[in-house]
Write a protein that binds this DNA or RNA. Structure first.
Lengths: 247, 247
DNA sequence: CAGCAGATTTAGGACCGACTAAACTTCTTG
DNA sequence: CAAGAAGTTTAGTCGGTCCTAAATCTGCTG
């Protein structure tokens, strides 16, 4: 009976609280998925401060939660040195992420939400749906690989689909053009702005020039100056930069 | 500045907690809507004990919550004498009920849940959806007046549609038959059983005889003995007992 | 390598909603 | 109308998640 109850990753006795799930999700997002995306299996350590900013909470609160999560075996936490997900914690985080992104996709496709509106609603619902609900909407959607923002949706078995390696708009060279692959911000006002400009996944853009304040871009027939902070969260897949895995 | 911030019923400053909403809903359900249904505007007082049973909580916990709700002006509470919703509390309760029943209807019609499965999922979701979500699913459903159990859904303006006055199966006379109008239990096992027998809203039934242990009924070509406890939660609208308001 | 700024943790509370145990009402009934 | 019994409230705890204020650590700079 003294076999292996420690790494009993799957059969969590008491379900995690909403707050706990949120912390784990943010550790995942900040740790790796955060900006670079794609290949995870985190090695990156996340700081108390980063977490505090994301969670809109004081650093002291983060410390407390990290201790608890550490006791639960969901994170590796070393005082003053930051935190990292364990295998078990990684699974939980991916599960939450799957819920979030499936819900976003569902709200958009089944209920007609604008792609920029879905985030807030999904944020609330992600912790309250059953596995049955997850399965039904996944099926209704045809098991999509990406949500309306272009973020990869972990599969039912919690694998993250390979995302086309692409570049931030701010990193494109002058004259380069491509397709918006991902809009990586959760800020509602930024999303509204992108939506207004038609800068959603699959939209075409061309970089006209880079300036200190931002990048001048061409969308359709309109030209805009996109501030750096916005240009950085727009991931572009380049023309003829087909990374298709099997062709 | 000393105007009227007290009965500020609508613009609740801090949103109510999930628990608070649940208590209000249960006061409504037990107080009137509970069994009789229909005409509400409660006069009925609900006891601490009843609430404790429904909420799966100890009576002492109920007392504590009732005090809080009373301070918030959502219930009238008098120690040892029970509790009743105020106008403001009634509104909140109806709003929660509307969410619950719309969600049930949506899960059933849009996502293919069995009518007996929807309750549990709705119970969790009802507190976490936005008004936008409510509106979208109500619209998708075509603003239904009843949920899959036959319970009336409060309208957007929180009016409860008039329900056909009908009788419990246990109160039918021998030989009478009619249509199941409402299956008024939240017990999952009972629901499963009803679902298995095809005893869902709109199903036809005939009472063959009443016995001490229950009622013998005819459903399709099958005969069953329905225990009293089950026969009591089945509301039947009688043949030729058309109460249609306008015809 | 001392000292300092910034990041982090500790200590001590607050609030919520549950619990137990004990005290208190109210109702019923001889 | 005086018990009891049943129902209810009070008092004191607890775990969860947040907070502020005050220590403490880390890493950099001069």
């Amino acid at each position: 009976m003294a076999k292996s109850w420690e790494g009993n990753s799957s059969s969590r006795s008491s379900p995690l609280s909403e707050a706990q799930e949120d912390y784990l999700k943010q550790v995942l997002l900040l740790g790796s998925g955060g900006e670079g995306m794609g290949r995870l299996q985190d090695t990156t350590v996340v700081s108390t401060q980063e977490l505090a900013n994301r969670m809109q909470v004081k650093p002291a609160s983060v410390t407390g939660m990290l201790k608890k999560l550490s006791e639960l075996g969901l994170v590796e936490y070393e005082a003053y040195r930051g935190v990292r997900l364990t295998e078990a914690g990684y699974k939980v985080a991916l599960e939450v992420l799957r819920h979030h992104r499936l819900i976003e996709a569902y709200l958009h496709q089944a209920l007609g939400y604008g792609w920029e509106e879905v985030h807030a609603e999904a944020e609330k619902l992600e912790h309250h749906i059953s596995e049955a609900f997850e399965q039904r909407i996944a099926q209704w959607l045809g098991h999509p690989s990406h949500d309306p923002h272009g973020d990869a949706i972990p599969s039912a078995s919690l694998e993250l689909p390979q995302t086309n390696a692409n570049r931030r708009l701010s990193a494109l060279k002058t004259g380069e053009s491509g397709m918006v692959a991902r809009v990586a911000t959760q800020d509602q006002d930024s999303l509204n702005l992108f939506a207004h400009l038609g800068l959603k996944p699959s939209a075409q853009v061309k970089v006209l020039e880079h300036l200190p304040q931002g990048s001048r871009v061409l969308i359709g027939n309109e030209r805009y100056l996109l501030p750096v902070s916005l240009a950085q969260v727009l991931w572009i897949s380049l023309e003829g930069d087909q990374q298709d895995e099997k062709v």
